[in-house]
Simulated scan of single mutants.
Amino acid sequence: MTKTTDFIPQEYTQKLTEKGSFQWSAPSNIALVKYWGKKENQIPANPSISFTLNNCKTITKLEFEPKKSTSKDFAFDLFLDGKPKEDFKPKMQKFFERIEVYLPFLKDYHFTISTENTFPHSSGIASSASGMGAMAVNFMSIEKLFNPEMTEEYFWQKASFLARLGSGSACRSIKGSVVVWGETESIENSSDLFGVEFLETIHPNFQNYQDTILLVDKGEKVVSSTVGHELMHNHPFAQQRFEQAHDNLARMKQILTDGNLQKFVELVESEALTLHAMMMTSMPYFILMKPNTLEIINKIWKYRQQTDIQVCFTLDAGANVHILYPNNSKDKVLQFIKNELIVYCQNQQYICDEIGIGSFKLN
């Protein structure tokens, strides 16, 4: 079984004195079975499974050069869309501190981080997942220069491990179209330390699965996900919820291999509402859904009943609605979205996405 110490490198075989750069793209992801609540060191309180997205991604270029000074601090500049982004720096500083023991070269270099998202920032799409995912694969590319014998398996596993230390769900944005994070009986080799690819054969019903994201509210959340996770510690229903997530993940494994769309719809919507129920029953309690979120949900239920098209919704920790549906229903569902749902979106904005394959290196 993999331990955290397995990711602390022994002596590197190569010295690196040159400057250089890498550029990677990493996607966002949407959880089908939700993770809510965590232990120390970004360990999830329950397992989760997600679809990796294709179009909503972060592209990050990481330039590095040996430091001229003997300073023992981390040295980095951070740019978002070409402009300095000072308010991101504390989060990045914390990330460097958490991963330093696993990447001992970090204090020897000055890094320039240039990042951009293909989706609007603060649109309620998990940019921390794609952003930290992109940082992790860039750092692993540098480590591979120090250790050229590194195996591909180790590269991807450690990238997911590092990404998790930046943002929990980022470990599900590294590799694979369906990813499981968190140790659970039903998934072989599952781990709390990193995400693992779902290796069962996925039924054709779920290939090219579509996700259209309705941007209901692009403002800052009233309660951050970090605070929300903390509130699970003394939550009256926490234990039952954690057990339910294990059961639901086992059920989702069966659904994805059998191709039962009706059961998929029921489980995904139930999980989304359970996530928000945990927020509404924590102390202090809070609601992240907006009136328009509920309007959209009701419209989806009505449309599904009238047409028998297996379209469903899921929610992250926010007001926006992800509409999931099979590729063969795409034209009809998009027409429904344009006719009936965009009126509930901020500035009528929505993003069309689909299942992707994870992060990749750009030339």
Rank of each mutant, 00 (worst) to 15 (best):
R241S: 05
Y350T: 12
L275I: 15
N320H: 01
A159S: 15
I59L: 04
S48M: 03
H233L: 11
L341F: 09
K19G: 15
D77H: 00
L214K: 10
S190E: 08
I49T: 02
S173W: 03
N363E: 11
F51A: 03
L193A: 11
E220S: 13
N55M: 07
I125F: 11
L215V: 14
N339M: 01
K85H: 10
L215I: 14
Q349A: 04
S177Y: 00
F237T: 06
F161I: 06
K218P: 00
F119N: 03
Q349C: 03
F139Y: 06
E65R: 03
V137E: 15
M279L: 00
M283C: 11
N117Y: 05
D247L: 09
H235K: 10
S282R: 04
L256G: 12
D247H: 10
Y344A: 02
T201V: 13
P148N: 02
L53A: 10
L267G: 07
Q210G: 11
N327I: 02
N328C: 13
D81S: 05
A134R: 08
S71W: 09
Q335L: 12
L16W: 05
N363H: 11
S28D: 12
A245D: 04
F360W: 11
L256C: 13
Q42F: 05
S50E: 06
E152D: 15
S114P: 12
F336I: 08
Q14N: 15
K332F: 02
V265H: 08
S173M: 04
A238Y: 07
T115V: 13
N260C: 02
H203I: 06
N147K: 10
F96M: 01
N248D: 02
A126H: 10
